[in-house]
Design a protein around this nucleic acid. Structure first.
Lengths: 232, 232
DNA sequence: CGGAATCTTGAACGATTTCAACGGTAGTGG
DNA sequence: CCACTACCGTTGAAATCGTTCAAGATTCCG
């Protein structure tokens, strides 16, 4: 874990929607108690149960939040890309991390912000408080979506829904996406085995519904995938 | 839907952990913009997409939060018993309800609190703000638990985990629980069919792991169920 | 250039869903 | 008050789907 201990600039901190509404002076102050971190691929950031003394923002790469079961299975709770903040909730409760965190397959660059300092700031700036509240509410909705997706009984349905919610590249009428994580991790996120994921994609290929190349997926028959997903 | 339009007393409002830390005067004020509601079994409270102008607290009975899929399946996001508050998140975002809500099998008595009035209050009382923040964080953790549970591949495992987290009655060493919802709803919550739930319970009975009577379940072999659940 | 890890594919097994039928219960209306 | 209906819960049998185990292909990293 590489640490750069120079303060983070307000501009850097403003990449996070959570901090964006803070006044310049507060960001400057917050920057002095913040560091930048660099994590290698799959490197651990923190483990569930450790006391949460800081919150983190993802500057580049991605952070995977996961639980591990007794039998070694790894359940991915969320994959956080650039601009996301992590562990605010744990910091608020003055509690400990409820999940494990590690860098994604391509490593990660992070901002580490001192928790106590952050809490102080919130009490001084109501708009910051509102921003945090809104961020938590959005996270809540994401998790509700997640719960709904996981309760779909069919593996293909879950994958279809996941892909359709990904930001698509390309012209209107076409649908190209780049998987944000390794297929292994994606499978865990969708509550299926990597084998099943591979087979679902193969089926889509065989039926000419999609073209799959490495981490790029292009949907040829969007209507079919949408119908499979249950709802657009 | 039966409405009692007399104000709610601070004592009544204080049944909700969310409102507990509010000063007496604020609760009095909040009470004047609050009503009590009475819902029959399965009666609808609100539907997903409607603008959220109020939040609700469960005084008695239960409220089921759910999504319905295109094919008519009903996925239960949460079952909220007495003391729970509902829809704070939607009110904060000045948004619309992300899920449907209806009364549980035994109906529900609710407090309806005006959203705008509540938001005002929060800005005047920092401790109230903290309380709300903490409540949202706890909800977040609950959902993370839920996501983890739903990703367990085995139906028996999911049921075991659910039951072990229920508040148990009885003396130490014994474990009796009363299911908080109808078996049909419980099955939906655990992402399985009612048939599968029935069969899992039958298996537990046959192996003398549990006694099932109506909505009462007594675990005879707690160790076995705990091992099945994957972790205590 | 190994070597590890990921991804893919095959086959067999196990589990859950589906479809169907039945008993019980609660609520309705005569 | 009693029949009638509707729904819930249970059980059975068959089919489907996903997992597991195993092996081969590929990529990436040291």
């Amino acid at each position: 874990m590489l640490v750069r201990s120079t303060p983070l600039s307000p501009a850097e901190l403003r990449t996070f929607p959570l901090l964006k509404p803070l006044r310049e002076e507060l960001l400057l102050e917050l920057g002095t108690s913040a560091h930048a971190l660099e994590l290698a691929a799959n490197e651990s950031l923190f483990r569930a149960g450790e006391p949460a003394t800081a919150l983190y923002g993802v500057l580049a790469g991605s952070i995977v939040l996961y639980r591990s079961s007794a039998d070694g299975r790894e359940q991915i709770v969320h994959d956080s890309g650039a601009g996301r903040t992590i562990a605010e909730a744990a910091v608020f409760l003055y509690g400990s991390f409820p999940v494990n965190a590690r860098a994604g397959a391509r490593g990660a660059r992070l901002a580490r912000v001192d928790g106590a300092r952050f809490l102080e700031l919130l009490d001084r700036d109501p708009s910051a408080m509102h921003s945090v509240l809104a961020a938590l509410c959005r996270r809540l909705h994401e998790l509700v979506d997640r719960v709904e997706m996981l309760s779909l009984p069919d593996a293909g349905q879950r994958l279809a829904r996941f892909i359709l919610r990904l930001p698509a590249e390309g012209r209107a009428g076409t649908f190209r996406v780049r998987l944000p994580v390794a297929k292994k991790d994606l499978a865990a996120q969708l509550a299926m085995t990597p084998e099943t994921l591979s087979r679902v994609l193969k089926r889509w290929r065989d039926q000419a519904w999609a073209v799959v190349q490495e981490e790029e997926i292009e949907l040829l028959d969007i209507a079919a995938i949408e119908e499979l997903s249950g709802e657009p």
